[in-house]
C-alpha cells in the first residue's frame, strides 16, 4: 500500500522520458566504443554498429604502444591538476569581492571582465607575450592562458551573490576577518559551484591542443590531445602522400577506427573523475548550515 501511495504519474512520465533520452545520448558513444574495437573493414561494412565485429585492438595498439603516449598523458595530468588548483583558487578570491554589492568600483571591474570575454588579440600577440615571458616550450605556457575565464568568474560570483547575507553579518559580529569569512564559511557553502568549475576547467585543459601547437617545441612537452590528433592527422597525411599498403608494412593506417579509439582514450578518464564531483550536486545539503 505504501508503495502505491508514493507512485505518481509525474514520476512515471519523468523516468520514462529520461530513459528515452539516455538511450539516444548513449547510442553514439556505444557506436564509438564498438568501432574502436573493430577492424576497419567491419567499420566500412556497417559504420553504425553497436557491437564490435572482428574484434581488433589494432587501433589501441597503435596508440598505446607509441612512445609519446606516456609523456603526453603525464603532461596533461600535470597541466590539468595545476591549472584547476590554481584556477579555482583565483576564481574564489576574485569572485568573492565582486559578489559584494557594496563594493566600490564593482561596475568598473565587471566591465573589465566582460571585455576580456569579448575581445581577443589573436594568435600573434599571444605568442609574443608568452615568448617575452620566457615561457615558450614549457608546460606553464599550457596552464597560464586558460587560468581565468570571464564566463566562469561570472558564474561563481553569481552563485556567491545568492548566498544569504545574514551569514556575513553574523560572522562579522563574531569578529571574523574577511579571509576567515571567505575560506571558512563562503567556500564550504559554495561547493556546488566550485565543483562545477573544477569540472569545467578540468575538461577545458584536458581537451585543449591548440595552445600546444603554438607554444610547444619539443615532443616531450606535448599534451595528450595534441599527441592523439597528430596520430590521426599523420595517418591521413600518409594516405595523401601515396603510401600504399605494401610500403607501410605492419603499422598499417586505419584512420577511422583510430579516430574512434582516440575518442575513447580521451573520454574515459574524465568519466572516471565525474563521480567524485557528483556528490556536491545534492540539494539542500549546503543550506542546512544556515539555519544551524
Amino acid at each position: 500500500m505504501r508503495i502505491w501511495k508514493r507512485f505518481e504519474w509525474f514520476d512515471a512520465v519523468n523516468y520514462t522520458l529520461l530513459l528515452l533520452i539516455c538511450v539516444i545520448m548513449l547510442y553514439p558513444f556505444v557506436n564509438v566504443a564498438a568501432v574502436s574495437f573493430s577492424s576497419y573493414s567491419s567499420f566500412l561494412e556497417n559504420p553504425m554498429m553497436i557491437w564490435p565485429k572482428q574484434l581488433s585492438f589494432a587501433a589501441y595498439n597503435q596508440i598505446l604502444s607509441h612512445p609519446v603516449l606516456l609523456s603526453s598523458y603525464t603532461n596533461t595530468i600535470i597541466i590539468t591538476v595545476c591549472g584547476v588548483a590554481i584556477g579555482i583558487f583565483l576564481y574564489i578570491i576574485t569572485a568573492y569581492p565582486l559578489s559584494k554589492k557594496h563594493l566600490k568600483g564593482r561596475n568598473f571591474f565587471m566591465v573589465i571582465v566582460i571585455f576580456t570575454m569579448l575581445f581577443n588579440g589573436g594568435l600573434i600577440p599571444n605568442f609574443y607575450l608568452i615568448r617575452e615571458l620566457g615561457l615558450l616550450d614549457t608546460l606553464t605556457a599550457l596552464v597560464v592562458p586558460m587560468l581565468l575565464s570571464g564566463f566562469n568568474l561570472i558564474l561563481m560570483k553569481n552563485f556567491m551573490e545568492s548566498l544569504p547575507e545574514e551569514l556575513e553579518e553574523a560572522a562579522k559580529m563574531d569578529g571574523a576577518s574577511e579571509p576567515y569569512l571567505l575560506f571558512r564559511i563562503i567556500v564550504p557553502l559554495s561547493m556546488p559551484i566550485i565543483a562545477t568549475l573544477c569540472l569545467f576547467t578540468a575538461v577545458g585543459y584536458w581537451n585543449n591542443f591548440f595552445n600546444a601547437v603554438i607554444y610547444i617545441r619539443s615532443v616531450e612537452n606535448w599534451p595528450l590531445m595534441l599527441f592523439l590528433r597528430e596520430i590521426i592527422e599523420g595517418a591521413r597525411m600518409q594516405e595523401i602522400s601515396g603510401a600504399n599498403a605494401a610500403e607501410v608494412g605492419k603499422n598499417a593506417v586505419v584512420p577511422e577506427t583510430l579516430k574512434y579509439a582516440t575518442l575513447m582514450i580521451v573520454m574515459v578518464p574524465i568519466l572516471c573523475v565525474y563521480p567524485f564531483v557528483q556528490k556536491y550536486f545534492v540539494q539542500g545539503i549546503t543550506l542546512g548550515s544556515v539555519k544551524g
Partner: peptide, 23 residues
C-alpha cells in the same frame, strides 16, 4: 581584504588578456 583579493585575478587579466588585446 576585498581589494587585495582582487589583485591576483586582475593582474592576470591585465597581463594575459589586455596586453595581447593591443594586438
Amino acid at each position: 581584504w576585498l581589494y587585495l583579493f582582487l589583485v591576483p585575478g586582475f593582474l592576470y587579466l591585465l597581463v594575459f588578456k589586455y596586453i595581447p588585446m593591443l594586438g
